[in-house]
Simulated assay, not measured.
Amino acid sequence: MANALSSSSLLSPTPIKLSTTVSPPSHHHLRRHTINSTTSSSNSINIKPLNFTRRQTIGFGLCLTLSDAAAVSPPPSSAAAESTACEFTVADSGLAFCDKLVGYGSQPVKGQLIKAHYVGKLENGKVFDSSYNRGKPLTFRIGVGEVIKGWDEGILGGNGVPPMLAGGKRTLKLPPQLGYGMRGAGCKGGSCIIPPDSVLLFDVEFIGKA
């Protein structure tokens, strides 16, 4: 966390496999599913959630069609702070982060159900998932392994990373070990939506407690 995986599938640490079964996408973005290639619109291919556990699906919410994912771009920036170049700070874990907009609300608590919008990109800038495209934020429990490690650390904080505050916007740069590692995700026939050993970039907007 994206063809139509449920809203709880994007950030799962478990790799997602594609199949050619046609079926409607489900929406539990950060729960364990598998992804199917299904025709959801006239000529776009959707990746939908299959049988992943909550942890898997929360980790990889590919709820976009493959064609839509390539065309998705982050929502227009309205804050001056977001228009400036983002200078990353690198934590001991290897996670890099940059606050584009510091929040004004409360910080998340481990185990709390929270909501966040995001755009996920490969290091080359290619978008592979976006909650904005679906018009619905991702809901998941923070700090309990429902999402990939880089998300828990990048939002909840720890290892030198300050916690996000509600209303804040942060860019996270995840090394492979905090994302999908050497397995990649969404792989079929030697091709992966997220290739093995990928560095991932996420623009995250922490909305707050769900």
Rank of each mutant, 00 (worst) to 15 (best):
158 G>N: 11
34 T>N: 08
93 S>D: 07
185 A>F: 12
178 L>I: 09
52 F>M: 12
130 S>Q: 03
85 A>K: 08
181 G>Y: 04
205 E>I: 13
147 V>P: 02
162 P>A: 14
185 A>E: 05
147 V>W: 00
140 F>M: 09
207 I>Q: 12
149 K>N: 14
65 T>P: 08
125 G>D: 04
95 L>R: 02
69 A>H: 02
153 E>R: 05
67 S>W: 00
47 I>N: 07
94 G>V: 07
93 S>G: 04
28 H>N: 06
172 L>F: 02
113 L>P: 08
159 N>Y: 13
203 D>G: 07
106 S>R: 12
167 G>W: 01
6 S>I: 05
73 S>E: 14
49 P>Y: 06
55 R>K: 15
60 F>H: 10
43 N>H: 14
86 C>V: 03
97 F>W: 14
120 G>V: 05
61 G>W: 00
67 S>C: 06
37 S>M: 09
29 H>E: 09
56 Q>S: 13
161 V>T: 15
142 I>A: 03
54 R>D: 15
67 S>P: 08
36 N>E: 08
132 Y>Q: 11
51 N>W: 02
143 G>H: 00
153 E>Y: 01
148 I>L: 06
158 G>H: 03
174 L>V: 11
71 A>G: 10
193 I>G: 03
139 T>K: 02
81 A>I: 04
70 A>L: 15
24 P>L: 00
192 C>L: 08
184 G>S: 05
121 K>Y: 00
30 L>R: 02
189 G>F: 09
111 G>D: 12
88 F>L: 15
134 R>Q: 11
66 L>D: 08
187 C>E: 05
88 F>S: 13
157 G>Q: 12
25 P>M: 10
63 C>W: 06
150 G>S: 11
11 L>S: 12
105 G>N: 07
98 C>Q: 00
124 N>M: 04
118 Y>T: 03
6 S>N: 14
32 R>Q: 09
34 T>D: 03
37 S>D: 07
19 S>D: 15
70 A>H: 07
58 I>Q: 13
142 I>R: 02
177 Q>L: 09
165 L>D: 07
4 A>V: 10
198 S>F: 10
42 S>N: 14
17 K>S: 13
172 L>M: 10
128 F>I: 08
80 A>Q: 09
121 K>I: 00
149 K>G: 08
41 S>E: 06
44 S>H: 04
40 S>R: 08
90 V>H: 09
189 G>P: 04
194 I>A: 07
139 T>Q: 11
69 A>R: 00
154 G>V: 00
203 D>F: 01
48 K>C: 13
200 L>D: 01
5 L>R: 11
93 S>N: 12
60 F>G: 14
187 C>Q: 03
41 S>H: 06
145 G>I: 04
125 G>V: 01
144 V>R: 09
166 A>T: 03
83 S>W: 06
85 A>D: 06
208 G>V: 09
19 S>F: 06
43 N>R: 11
186 G>M: 05
84 T>K: 12
129 D>H: 01
12 S>Q: 13
169 K>M: 10
111 G>Q: 09
105 G>C: 05
187 C>P: 06
90 V>M: 15
109 V>Y: 02
120 G>E: 08
29 H>A: 09
91 A>L: 10
89 T>R: 07
84 T>V: 14
193 I>Q: 03
39 T>M: 08
119 V>F: 04
132 Y>P: 10
132 Y>W: 12
196 P>I: 12
102 V>L: 15
58 I>F: 13
88 F>H: 11
